[in-house]
Amino acid sequence: MAVLDILKYPDEVLKQISEPVESFDNELLAFLADLEETMRAGPGGVGIAAAQVGNFRRIAIVDVSAKPKIKHNGCMILINPEIKTWDGMKIGREGCMSVPDYTGNVIRAEKITLQACNAKGELCDYECEGYEARAVQHELDHLDGMLFLDRLVSRRTDLFKRKKYK
């Protein structure tokens, strides 16, 4: 296993669109292990996309389980992922291992459902919300050459929290 080099913006290759994974073989497993190790080596990194290490296949890993008191699906290996439904909107603060020394506000869906293959190529369904849903949307953007910088909203923008009426 090895910690891979993270590409940093303004490297334009981060804008490249990744291609679907076709073969689920040992090479893929080895790459997944390296990608996960790279994610865990980053300070506070809860997700990574293959594009961030210059591998343009539709692969992302998200693991927010270290965060206390939130719903999560454990360590999600997301291969050829596809978001099926989006629900709600929320502003949250994001940073990116490919964009050091900057965090900014981004609007994401609060809840999503998605389908993705696991490391064995089996199709899995997931429901994500909140912090985990944000991480998944951030990583899947990388597969389409999008950075959170493409979705920034003004730091002044603040959606007043919806009060719950009884």
């Binding site: 994001e94 291992m97 965090t103």
Partner: peptide
């Protein structure tokens, strides 16, 4: 006054 934690997601 409204206080909201800013939980930065880094990915």
């Amino acid at each position: 006054v409204d206080m909201t934690p800013i939980d930065v997601m880094i990915g």
